[in-house]
Amino acid sequence: MFEGLFYLFVFPGLAFQVFCGLAFEWVDRKLLARFQRRVGPQWYQPLADLIKLFSKEDLLPTGASGWVATILPLISLAAVLTAGLYIPVAGFTPFSFEGDLIVIVFLMGIPTLAYYLAGMTSVGIYSILGGARSLLQYFSYEVPLLLAFSGPAILSGSWSVAEILKSQAELGPFILFQPVGFCLAIAGLIGKLKRDPLDIPKAKSEVVAGSLTEFSGGKLAFWHLTMDIQAIVGIFLLINLFFGMPLGISPWINTLIFSGEVLLVIFILSASSSIFARLRIDQLASLGWRILVPVGIIQLLFVILMGV
């Protein structure tokens, strides 16, 4: 009983994920600032921003439904937190079962749908456009992302993230077998997190802040927290599926390797958001369906043949 609560609320649950999410935001902002020849924020800035947002007045436009607007960020936050519970952190997995990869992918899709609904229930034109775009973008990145995720699963013969991790300890990191799959997964993750260059649903110069334009105060804080935790959960998942680590030596060495891998993925995400311009939504659709999906299928066929 007590152990279960500890897992849920402290590690690898709520407290740990909130901490990692805020740490991710700081590292990301610091890296972006360094790429732009700036100093960047202090380490406590993401937390300070969060506290500030919670203390702000919470406004909603006339005509928007209050309880829907409240419940959407909470549902998405709950979904990503739950998804985070099933992902091994430095090889530690309290709740693991066959097929949890599919549950994780499903749970990670919920924030996107909530984001869409948030856009549609707000009354502003920017929100509606942002919401419609987020759904369009979902159809473009989700299939390549799933194709990329199914590569490691097929190679290890299991749909459990913990099992995939275990088989990587024997076979070696899967990134060596499927570098293309890793690139696809990165592209898909960027799309899922709505980060530059695929921040089309919240492109500032076009639709102001997309679905979140009319949100403020605590609700916006929950949305920001959701985005941060979604990012960190996505990065953890990517590492477990593609990098892996030698298991069973010492938890400290595992933690060290894991942190290094997390930083590497954050660096890749930040760098790609700096060097690519934002794509148009039609360009993203054609990139997703004409290039990423065929490449993903070829990669998958390759994996299947190799497995045989």
Partner: peptide, 11 residues
């Protein structure tokens, strides 16, 4: 990007 990463901030 790499140049900027290894140079001093302008701020």
């Amino acid at each position: 990007l790499i140049d900027a990463l290894f140079s001093k901030a302008d701020t």
